[in-house]
Simulated scan of single mutants.
Amino acid sequence: MDFVFKIIEKDKIHTVIPLVEKLNGYKISTAILEQRFKEMATQNYECAGVYNDDALIGVCGLWFCTRHYSGKSAEVDHVYIDEDYRGKGLGKSFFAWIYNYVKLKDCESIELNTYVSNYASHKFYYNEDFKILGYHFLKKL
């Protein structure tokens, strides 16, 4: 199969929502996700997609910033590959494309968070040479 990796146009950002809804272990309404993604598209955010023909089968958000400890970086967010396409090397190909893309934007590093219970992702990221530097904390206000 030939897959296409590309940045999703900001006016089509809503197309990622069905995949992101599968990712979340908790339920956020579609309306709230639509609102949040629309707002995210106005910030330092881009979303990469994996397409099989015209079907969106994978997504990865990219937040761009400069951090004192890592320089210009991309933070990978809400990575999801449709279950029917897992275990076939697509994630590795997608991340190779992402590494190249963010290097073209002069990024020096990539960061990410992953759910504690998502053991398959931990193995994947270890195999991609990511290192655990700390814990991610969240406090709802």
Rank of each mutant, 00 (worst) to 15 (best):
M1Q: 11
D2A: 13
D2I: 15
F3H: 04
F3K: 04
F3I: 10
F3Y: 09
F5I: 00
F5E: 01
I8M: 00
E9S: 15
K10F: 01
D11F: 04
I13N: 03
T15L: 07
T15I: 12
P18T: 00
L19E: 05
L19P: 03
L19V: 02
K22T: 13
K22P: 03
N24I: 15
N24M: 14
G25N: 08
G25Q: 06
G25F: 05
G25E: 05
Y26Q: 09
K27T: 12
K27V: 15
S29Y: 07
S29E: 08
T30I: 11
A31H: 04
A31L: 01
I32A: 12
I32M: 13
Q35Y: 15
R36M: 13
F37L: 03
K38T: 14
M40T: 04
M40D: 06
M40Q: 11
A41N: 08
T42D: 10
Y45I: 09
Y45G: 02
Y45E: 01
E46Q: 14
A48L: 07
A48C: 02
G49P: 09
Y51A: 11
Y51I: 05
N52R: 14
D54P: 02
D54F: 08
A55D: 13
A55F: 07
V59A: 08
V59T: 08
V59H: 09
G61I: 03
L62K: 09
W63D: 09
C65A: 14
T66D: 14
R67Y: 14
R67I: 01
R67G: 10
H68P: 12
S70L: 10
K72G: 05
K72H: 08
E75L: 11
V76Q: 02
V76T: 13
V76Y: 03
V79S: 00
V79Y: 10
V79M: 10
Y85H: 12
Y85C: 06
Y85T: 09
Y85P: 09
G87Q: 02
K88Y: 11
K88R: 10
G89T: 01
G91P: 10
K92G: 07
K92Q: 11
S93E: 15
F94A: 01
F95C: 04
W97D: 00
I98N: 01
I98P: 04
I98R: 00
I98Q: 04
N100L: 03
Y101H: 15
L104P: 02
K105S: 10
K105W: 06
K105H: 13
D106V: 05
D106N: 13
C107V: 01
E108L: 08
I110D: 10
E111V: 06
L112A: 02
L112T: 02
N113H: 15
N113M: 11
T114C: 03
T114M: 06
Y115E: 14
Y115D: 15
V116W: 11
V116N: 04
S117T: 11
N118H: 07
Y119M: 14
Y119W: 10
A120S: 15
S121L: 02
S121W: 02
H122F: 00
F124A: 07
F124Y: 09
F124P: 05
Y125H: 03
Y126G: 03
N127Y: 08
E128Q: 15
D129P: 03
I132K: 14
I132M: 13
L133Y: 14
Y135H: 03
L138R: 14
L138P: 00
K139H: 12
K140W: 11
L141R: 09
